[in-house]
């Protein structure tokens, strides 16, 4: 098992390296931030001078090696746009990102999974129809629209929740629900399918024949087996919740790394984008490894296959 983990970690390091290299070069294909930094009236010579001062006139390979060298010393560098250490810029956003991702995940799990189970157990009934309509609503509205509707309803008209920003648990509610709605639908549908699949298996029929109630059968046997695909999906969603919350963060003025990443891409603040990608991909890979280990725990057949 330890060797397995070590091998996976090595593979993960290679994957991260791949990602960071791709991002490094793709970003630099699209120019550098010099033009965004200078005043509108700057002359070509002034721009060239600033570009030189910032080091963007060096060959790409030199910049790349320099970056890797810094990275090897755990130095993420200094943002040329904000003139501050990159770790400070990213780290000050992390708590907000974690809070929003956790809020959205909790919302999605506590609504999505029970909904999915209910939809499977009461398949074809009114309950399923009602639930699926509700669940699908979360997946069929652009968040930039539902977000502003939420703000107008709960913030402006009812005064229940703060309209924007990040002070207090109350301001976490709306962004979590709007962001979680998408994941909720995914969880519900995946759970429904997995549970349905398991319900069709012989062992369930056998258990039911032995007189076990549906509820008991679900709790004792089905959930455990139905968990595999659901766990996969949850792990997949976390990466998106971390840095993919761009639109929700923009609408609710939530200072997470999604918003930061977007602003940094548009500002060509390379080092900040790279640091975020590095962070998200490390989290993702850790979760992924945990998922694989969870697989083997749930279903011994899979062990050693990957």
């Amino acid at each position: 098992m330890r060797r397995y983990i070590a091998r996976r970690l090595l593979q993960a390091a290679i994957a991260t390296f791949l990602v960071i290299t791709i991002v490094f070069f793709v970003m630099r294909l699209s120019g550098d931030p010099t033009l965004l930094l200078v005043p509108e009236g700057a002359t070509a010579e002034q721009i060239a001078a600033l570009r030189h001062a910032l080091g963007f006139d060096r060959p790409l390979a030199v910049q790349y090696l320099g970056y890797l060298g810094d990275l090897a010393h755990f130095d993420l560098g200094q943002s040329l746009v904000q003139r501050a250490p990159v770790w400070l810029i990213v780290a000050s956003r992390l708590p907000y990102t974690m809070a929003l991702a956790a809020g959205a995940l909790v919302f999605a799990l506590v609504t999505g999974i029970p909904a999915g189970i209910a939809m499977a157990v009461w398949r074809g009934g009114v309950t399923e129809r009602l639930l699926s309509a509700l669940v699908l609503a979360g997946q069929s509205l652009p968040t930039f629209w539902s977000g502003i509707l939420f703000i107008l309803l709960f913030g402006v008209s009812l005064h229940w929740l703060p309209t924007s920003g990040a002070d207090g648990p109350a301001s976490l509610v709306m962004p979590s629900v709007v962001l979680g709605a998408l994941a909720m639908a995914t969880f519900a549908r995946m759970t429904r399918i997995s549970v349905l699949e398991e319900l069709g298996r012989d062992y369930v029929t056998a258990a039911r024949a032995r007189g076990l109630s549906m509820g008991a059968a679900v709790v004792r046997h089905v959930l455990r087996n139905a968990a595999i695909p659901v766990v996969t999906v949850v792990a997949l969603e976390v990466g998106n919740l971390l840095a993919g919350a761009v639109i929700v963060e923009t609408v609710f003025a939530w200072p997470g790394i999604g918003q930061l990443a977007m602003q940094s891409i548009f500002a060509r603040d390379f080092l900040v984008v790279q640091a975020i990608v590095l962070f998200v991909s490390m989290v993702y890979i850790a979760l992924n490894l945990a998922t694989d280990l969870a697989y083997s725990a749930i279903d011994p057949r899979i062990r050693g296959m990957a």
């Binding site: 502003i148 703000i151 309209t163 924007s164 920003g165 923009t250 003025a253």
Partner: peptide
């Protein structure tokens, strides 16, 4: 000075007294 990137949200902030 708060950072609120989205225009409609800034208006909601003003109307809600935030």
């Amino acid at each position: 000075f708060r950072a609120v990137p989205d225009g409609p949200t800034r208006i909601a902030d003003l109307r809600a007294g935030r």
